[in-house]
Amino acid sequence: MKNSFSEIDILLLNKKKAIKQFLTRENSNPARVLRYLNYENRLKELQEELIQLQNWVDENKEKVVIIYEGRDAAGKGGAIRRTTEHLNPREFRVVALPKPTEEEKGQWYFQRYVKQLPREGEIVFFDRSWYNRAIVEPVNGFCSKEEYDIFMNQVNDFERMITESGIRLIKLYFSISKDEQTKRFEEIKSSPVKKWKFSDVDKRALELWDDYTVYKKAMFEKTNTESSPWIVIKGNRKTTARIDAIEHILDKIPYIGKDNETTTHIDF
């Protein structure tokens, strides 16, 4: 069955950007190239809307925290980069904390995250967050059962306290299949510029897939609260996941000047 393209589709496919896609991407065909061009156009629209959101946050001295969680190679970093690409760098931060120091290990678990919370007029994006203790740490033996139980007992109260203090909290979880994670790990390991990302934790991720699933379910059951719900992003297709994540952010924050026509979800 032949694909039918509209006049607008044909115009897009004849642009320089489309021709470049045909020449540089493997297994290119008109439908795939068109989907990518529609993704780029949609992304541009949403990024312009994100600037409106950021201006509102700044002008109204709002404080916003956006958490990106998910399995290794789920696309969290790429989604953050697309979200922040055209924002004013002075008014947002991306936080990706390394493993805790010896001093931090002796502190209240949430203490080092409290230090990273936003000032007035700022958005903070957490590339992994305090939820390391909900899944990654117990699965890999980086915390004790007692430490895990204390975290699970405190996390909802912690989030209630920060939201009651005026912080707007959005929690995104990027979900991918085991096959997709396997594929992405192979791509990372074979890439000269990405292979540094493949850590010892990544090496064990596939072997411990079922353990991750058990702790993920426990996390959702305990922490998917009415005041701080989880938003699950289907991440097997990176482009779709990036668009969905931005749409949810724009939907959840009631900024002035929102273009409802632009922010309404559309398939591409």
Score class of each variant (00 low, 15 high):
4 S>W: 13
6 S>T: 15
13 L>R: 02
17 K>D: 12
19 I>F: 08
30 P>Q: 02
31 A>N: 14
32 R>K: 15
36 Y>E: 13
36 Y>I: 04
38 N>W: 01
45 E>Y: 00
47 Q>R: 06
49 E>G: 03
55 N>L: 07
56 W>V: 01
58 D>M: 15
68 Y>S: 00
69 E>H: 11
70 G>H: 10
76 K>Q: 09
77 G>N: 07
78 G>D: 09
78 G>S: 12
79 A>T: 13
79 A>Y: 03
80 I>Q: 02
82 R>Q: 10
86 H>T: 14
86 H>R: 12
86 H>Y: 15
91 E>F: 13
102 E>N: 14
106 G>C: 04
106 G>Q: 14
107 Q>F: 02
110 F>W: 04
115 K>D: 14
116 Q>I: 00
120 E>G: 11
124 V>W: 02
126 F>H: 11
126 F>A: 03
126 F>T: 04
127 D>C: 01
130 W>K: 08
135 I>N: 07
138 P>Q: 08
139 V>S: 04
142 F>N: 05
144 S>V: 00
145 K>Q: 12
151 F>L: 12
154 Q>T: 01
162 I>H: 09
169 L>A: 01
171 K>R: 04
173 Y>M: 05
173 Y>G: 01
180 E>M: 12
182 T>P: 03
184 R>I: 05
187 E>R: 07
187 E>Q: 13
189 K>S: 13
199 S>M: 03
202 D>F: 06
206 L>N: 08
211 D>Y: 09
212 Y>A: 07
218 A>S: 11
219 M>A: 14
220 F>Y: 06
223 T>I: 08
225 T>I: 06
225 T>E: 04
229 P>R: 11
230 W>Q: 11
231 I>L: 10
232 V>Y: 08
232 V>R: 06
233 I>Q: 05
239 T>M: 08
247 E>C: 10
254 P>A: 04
256 I>G: 05
256 I>V: 12
259 D>G: 09
